[in-house]
Design a protein around this nucleic acid. Structure first.
Lengths: 197, 197
DNA sequence: CACAGCATGTCACCTGGTGCCATCAACTAC
DNA sequence: GTAGTTGATGGCACCAGGTGACATGCTGTG
């Protein structure tokens, strides 16, 4: 028994996405996912640290790509420019994966637990980016704010991308979000806030 | 049996914080928390929707206060100014609770699951703030970015507050973070980003 | 006293998640 | 070819988080 089968991880991901789409995340048990993939629950948990993680496989690659682009920018570039350098390769990574991304986004949007996981993934990414900026000599807090700002732009653009009716280029959506950030921020000089007391 | 006891929720929170501080979050079972509070596991889950939530009771009040301050600002105020209006009452809410906040922060920092929950709470808060801004006629995306930016400043200031050796006023830390955000952003005109390809 | 309502307890049950060991295929060495 | 090794998987017992259904007991109120 237990003949070896290729791409166990990929089959588990496929089975999970299908079942989540069919009956929802909560109504799907790990045992069912494993069965559809021709495996057992125990094996599922050897590939994914928990049930949610099956929807987030690949986020390490995203981080790797983003950090590579960041560290490749000249060291005299501004923090925000360095953060935004990751946008292009990421956009390339996503082009063509819209159907999968949309299905996945629908599943996640329907479940608070999954939204938690998505958020923490983005946050971890922001922390990695921040660390990379600090490595380049940027001050701790400036790095954090730049990283967070870049992530927000990315997040807004991504949400628009999966919600879009026509498959607009991801990169174009990023530029739109970026322009709006500029408008929001530059319209708000620090002096507009009330004096502390 | 089962004589009624006052403030069951408060006793559960106290017992949970104590046990988490003593042996860590993972090494503490819900049954143990309930026992220390003189109750049962079933009752714990009547007061808190899950084990983590016992550390986040009170976040609804934070949201309520913030939104009140926001809606109280004149409608011609800028989005970011409206968001930042919440800083003062929130600072008031926190002053004097530093020991509790610090203990809680240590517990959360030691556990990824709890960090997920904290993040999603902040995100929900950002969404509420965004919704309130939209209600005032701010455009959807500008509202989101303003809310997110305000939350980031709040988050940075809060992290500093609990990490501080001497109990600096929370409000002062907010102003510091705000100044740094201004520096980071205003040093980065949109023109510095690469032209889209 | 009878009754309603509320907080709590009790119990059975499901599922996510893990530790431990058995099994089986493929590969290597002799 | 046989023995041993390695790596992926299955099987199983077990723990803890979480829930539904029902019982119990206190408190107030007519």
């Amino acid at each position: 028994m237990s003949r070896w089968k290729p791409d166990a991880r990929g089959r588990l991901i496929k089975a999970a996405i299908e079942l989540f789409a069919e009956r929802g995340y909560d109504a799907t048990t790990v045992t069912e996912i494993a069965e559809r993939a021709g495996l057992t629950k125990r094996t599922f948990f050897r590939y994914f640290s928990d049930k949610r993680e099956v929807l987030f496989y690949g986020s390490e690659e995203l981080e790797r790509i983003w950090l590579e682009a960041l560290t490749a920018t000249p060291t005299d570039a501004s923090p925000l420019a360095a953060v935004m350098a990751g946008f292009d390769p990421i956009a390339e990574l996503f082009e063509g994966r819209l159907p999968f991304a949309r299905l996945r986004a629908e599943i996640i949007m329907a479940n608070p637990e999954l939204q938690e996981r998505e958020l923490i993934k983005l946050q971890r990414l922001a922390e990695s980016i921040k660390a990379a900026l600090v490595e380049r000599g940027i001050a701790h807090d400036a790095a954090m704010l730049a990283a967070q700002t870049g992530l927000t732009v990315f997040h807004v653009a991504f949400a628009r991308w999966v919600a879009q009716e026509d498959p607009t280029a991801f990169r174009r959506l990023i530029d739109e979000s970026l322009d709006e950030l500029s408008e929001v921020i530059t319209a708000e000089p620090a002096a507009t806030r009330r004096s502390s007391g």
